[in-house]
Write a protein that binds this DNA or RNA. Structure first.
Length: 549
RNA sequence: UGGGCUAUAGCCAAGCGGUAAGGCACCGGAUUUUGAUUCCGUGAUUCGCAGGUUCGAAUCCUGCUAGCCCAGCCA
């Protein structure tokens, strides 16, 4: 299968085309700039696909840059998992950088700002700064520190760096406009003091730059031409441009904002995902119900399906909530030709074929994937005792029920027609076994046309069956449930674990092998819980079905 | 209510003054040894609303309405 190319347009692509046509840029350079303080999720994937494929389409380059300007929250652990996820998605970054690589240059540029009278060291406390900032509708007022001399500012800033002050005692601010209607321009903080060890620079620094100061410099230093971020940074664009200009950066990156991804039945914020993990609603960040890249991977989503989804949802500026069924569509489409078909019984019901010879096992021919004949054939056993799905039998079925019921005949996939003659129940009245007869003339592939049957069931032969565990997932979040707290929307039934049977040849299956369980859906061998003597499958997604009881 | 942004079908989304792409979902129908797949068909006289400009407007102008974001020494 060849990689699909996104031919559709979006406003960012249009900007890039214009910049190339006008000669503003000869090469496109983008970057994916995660903060190493958590795991990547499908929303990040949207940004990753956008940045990497946009540059690639126009022969440009994309850097991976960790925005590690806040050592209080960041950790090495996350840079490794982020790199792993990007690589798994199949992208190769051009340069691998850290914001912290540029701390020295950022410091020098701050000194430049001070010398130009465009930055000053603030004595006011955090609370006072907030009070002086004004409100959304009222202008702020200027701090007494604002009129400090360049010399004094230079001295104070140097002493901030030297560690002479405690956390929060001083701060470096840009001198812009305290009465700006855009609050981001009311003398924003550029540097704060934090005597915190940094995962990259150790104890070298005790002052750290703020995002709004650091980010534009990082982009400019790397020669990024199009700095793509999400909508909430729109108000910061004037500040972004101010920093690039006043710091006299050679390159002039352009910040472009797009709407982040929202998915139905899903929460995407790091805070909420963390809460689900911390309160044990999820089995870690890679729980198959999580929208994290690692969760989707464990669930069984392929990189190709995730990427194709990201390409097809488009890029725009309007708030959006994409139907999660669209994501499901792309994994079905990707696995349709790739995944071997196999029969598994998730909720077993024993069936005895009373007219089949005892002790005999015959091996039937079955296609591995009828949609992809190149995948060849396999052998499956058949004998007197088999398991079928509990939901494939009803003692008193409604109309249009094509499956097994007393007196009805159905086809067993790859095998024979069987007819239900007797229902065995336990003392509580539960159906525990069926007695059926088969018709040897109806063998699959024999060309039998004597009579037709409405239903085809899957089965697993009992003596050769291999036991397995199935983990059936439902949405973690229920949109239709209302609540003030998103935790009220957590689905109490998001995981069903069953034990059943798979075909004997499944003993060869290993972690991350993907299958289509006939009439059920696509499943992935779980890499965490599968062991030598235990096969565990994650249901990636069900097959679509128009069947309604 | 200061500033920024957004509004095209149930959900995404293209469109850039010449008469509404595409995908998902849904619903029909055909084929089917998966109630799957595949195939075929169906939905906007209309683009948040109201005016205006124009031979012609989703596209330009004016006014309104609704939603999202901003008052971290987070990113």
């Amino acid at each position: 299968m060849s990689e699909k190319v996104n031919t559709s347009s979006n406003f960012i692509k249009n900007i890039v085309k214009e910049d190339l046509a006008s000669g503003t840029h000869n090469e496109i350079i983008t970057r994916f700039p995660p903060e190493p303080n958590g795991y990547l999720h499908i929303g990040h994937a949207k940004s990753i696909v956008l940045n990497f494929e946009l540059a690639d389409e126009f022969g440009g380059r994309t850097n991976l840059r960790f925005d590690d300007t806040n050592p209080l929250k960041e950790d090495r652990e996350f840079v490794e998992s982020i790199k792993e996820d990007i690589e798994w998605l199949g992208y190769e970054w051009d340069g691998l950088h850290f914001a912290s690589d540029y701390f020295e240059e950022m410091y020098d540029r701050a000194v430049l700002l001070i010398k130009k009278g465009l930055a000053y060291v603030e004595d006011l406390s955090q609370e006072e700064i907030r009070a002086y900032r004004g409100t959304l509708t009222e202008p702020g007022k200027e701090s007494p520190s604002r009129s400090r001399s360049v010399e004094e500012n230079l001295d104070l800033f140097e002493r901030m760096r030297a560690g002479e002050f405690k956390d929060g005692e001083k701060v470096l601010r840009a001198k812009i406009d305290m009465s700006s209607p855009n609050i981001n321009l009311r003398d924003p903080v550029l540097y704060r003091i934090s005597h915190t060890r940094h995962h990259n620079t150790g104890d070298k620094w005790c002052i750290y730059p703020m995002y709004s100061y650091a980010h534009p410099l990082e982009d400019a230093i790397e020669g990024v031409t199009h700095s793509i971020c999400t909508l909430e940074f729109e108000d910061q664009r004037p500040l972004y441009n101010w920093v690039v200009e006043k710091c006299e950066m050679e390159a002039t990156p352009k910040q472009i904002e797009f709407a982040r991804l929202n998915l139905t039945n899903t929460v995407m914020s790091k805070r909420k995902l963390k809460q689900l993990v911390d309160e044990n609603y999820a089995d870690g960040w890679d729980d198959p119900r999580m929208p994290t890249i690692s969760g989707l991977r464990r669930r069984g989503y392929t990189a190709e399906a995730i990427k194709q989804f990201c390409r097809e949802i488009g890029v725009a500026k309007s708030d959006n909530t994409v139907d999660v069924r669209m994501l499901e569509h792309f994994i079905r489409e990707d696995l349709k030709m790739k995944a071997p078909r196999t029969m598994s019984v998730l909720h077993p019901l024993k069936v005895v074929i009373t007219n089949y010879p005892e002790g005999e096992v015959e091996w039937l021919d079955a296609e591995v994937n009828p949609e992809n004949p190149e995948m060849g054939m396999r052998k499956i056993p058949f004998s007197r005792e088999i398991y079928i799905e509990q939901s494939d039998f009803m003692e008193n079925p409604p109309k249009k029920y094509f499956r097994l019921f007393p007196g009805n005949e159905v086809r067993l996939k790859h095998a024979y027609f069987i007819k239900c003659n007797e229902v065995i129940k336990d003392e509580d009245g539960n159906v525990i076994e069926l007695h059926c007869t088969y018709d040897p003339e109806t063998k699959s592939g024999s060309g039998f046309t004597g009579r037709k049957v409405k239903g085809t069931l899957h089965f697993v032969e009992a003596s050769q069956a291999k036991e397995a565990e199935f983990r059936l997932y439902n949405p973690l979040i229920l949109d239709e449930k209302e609540g003030n707290d998103f935790m009220d929307q957590v689905n109490a039934d998001s995981l069903e674990i069953t034990r059943g049977y798979v075909e004997p040849n499944m003993s060869e299956a290993g972690p991350h092998d993907k299958f289509q369980f006939f009439r059920h859906g696509y499943f992935n061998v779980d890499p965490k819980y599968t062991s030598e003597d235990k096969l565990v499958f994650n249901r990636i997604v069900e097959l679509k079905s128009s069947f309604k009881l």
